[in-house]
C-alpha cells in the first residue's frame, strides 16, 4: 500500500533527536509510507510559548497547519510536544473566529485547515500498519524486556488527543509484542519526566526521572521505549546524574519505538542510531 504524508520533524528532530528522525524515516520507508517534509515549517512554540503568550502559542503551529493544508495531505508529527501543541492550536483555531482573523493579520497568509494531524501513536495504532510491521519482522527481539513509556502529550488532555486509553495506553506495547519482544506491565506509563523544566531545574527533573527509572527496573525492564524526543532526551542524558544524586545504580538504554521497529525489520544500519545514545544500547542488544 502506498501512502504519502506531510512530515513535520520539529526542532528536536533536526538536532539532539536526529536518531528519532532517521529511524522514523527509515521505518516509514520499510512500511511503504512516503514522507514529504513540510516546506519552511516553523517551531511550534513547544513548552514555552504557551507559558508566555496564549495567542502566539496558537499562531505558531497554525502556520504549519496552513502549510500542510496547502500540501493537502495528513500531517505526521512524531514529536509528542509538537503534536500536542499543534492539536491544541487546531482546536483553538476551529473554535475561535477571533484567532482566525488575527492569524491573517499577524502571519500574512490565509488560514486553511482540513488536515488530520497524526502522532507516532496514531500511526502505529492503525491495524494495517501493525500488520505490515508484524509481517516484516526479520530479526525478532526475543528476550528483550522493555517498559513502554508514553509520557504526557501523546495522550493528554484526551479532549485534544482523542486518546481513549489515556491512563494506560497500549499502542507501543502491542508493537513491541509484534516485534517479538516483551513489554512489561507497569504503572508509570504516562507519568511526567519534567520535560521543559530541564534547563531551569535539573534537580527537580532528576527526581522525576528517578521515579520512572526505579519503577521500570522494579517491573523487570532492561530498557525503556518512548515516542517523544523530550522524554528520550531527559531519560537518556539525565539518568546518570539522577542515579548519582540519589544513590542508585540503574543504567538503562532509552529507545525510540521507531528504532526498535527498524532493528527488528532488518534495517541495515541501526549502528548510526545507537551511536547517538548516551547509554549505549549495544551491550543489551548483544544479549538478545
Amino acid at each position: 500500500m502506498d501512502q504519502v504524508l506531510s512530515y513535520y520533524p520539529g526542532c528536536s528532530l533536526h538536532g539532539t533527536a536526529s536518531e528519532y528522525d532517521a529511524s522514523t524515516r527509515a521505518v516509514c520507508e520499510l512500511l511503504g509510507i512516503r514522507l514529504e517534509e513540510l516546506e519552511d515549517w516553523n517551531c511550534c512554540g513547544a513548552s514555552s510559548a504557551h507559558a508566555v503568550d496564549h495567542e502566539l502559542s496558537v499562531l505558531l503551529p497554525a502556520r504549519n497547519i496552513a502549510l500542510a493544508a496547502k500540501a493537502d495531505k495528513d500531517l505526521f508529527i512524531p514529536c509528542a510536544a509538537c503534536y500536542g501543541r499543534s492539536k491544541v492550536a487546531q482546536a483553538a483555531m476551529t473554535e475561535d473566529a477571533g484567532l482566525r482573523a488575527k492569524f491573517g493579520e499577524a502571519v500574512g497568509m490565509e488560514y486553511r485547515d482540513g488536515v488530520a494531524i497524526r502522532s507516532m501513536l496514531d500511526l502505529l495504532a492503525d491495524p494495517d500498519v501493525l500488520q505490515r510491521i508484524r509481517a516484516g519482522v526479520k530479526r525478532p527481539l526475543r528476550g528483550l524486556k522493555v517498559a513502554c513509556y508514553y509520557g504526557c502529550l501523546l495522550v493528554r488532555p484526551p479532549k485534544i488527543t482523542g486518546a481513549a486509553d489515556y491512563e494506560a495506553p497500549e499502542t507501543m506495547d502491542r508493537v513491541v509484542e509484534a516485534l517479538g519482544g516483551t513489554a512489561v506491565p507497569w504503572s508509570y506509563k504516562t507519568d511526567c519526566c519534567g520535560g521543559g523544566l530541564v534547563l531551569g531545574r535539573p534537580d527537580v527533573v532528576g527526581r522525576l526521572i528517578d521515579r520512572l527509572m526505579t519503577r521500570a527496573v522494579e517491573a523487570g525492564a532492561a530498557a525503556l521505549v518512548t515516542a517523544c524526543p523530550m522524554c528520550q532526551g531527559n531519560l537518556d542524558t539525565r539518568q546518570k546524574d539522577a542515579a548519582q544524586a540519589l544513590g542508585r545504580d540503574y543504567q538503562l538504554p532509552i529507545f525510540y519505538i521507531s528504532e526498535l521497529i527498524g532493528l527488528a525489520m532488518g534495517h541495515p544500519k541501526p549502528e548510526a542510531w545507537w551511536k547517538k545514545h548516551l547509554v549505549d544500547p549495544r551491550p543489551l542488544l548483544g544479549t538478545i
Binding site: C11, A46, A51, L199, R201
Partner: peptide, 27 residues
Amino acid sequence: QPGIVATHAAFLAEIRARGRVHEMFLV
C-alpha cells in the same frame, strides 16, 4: 524560579531570531 523563566525567555528569543530553535544557541 528565575531559571525556568530564563528557559522561556531563551526559547522565545530563538523563535524571534530564526523561527526555529537551535538547541546549542538555546542553552
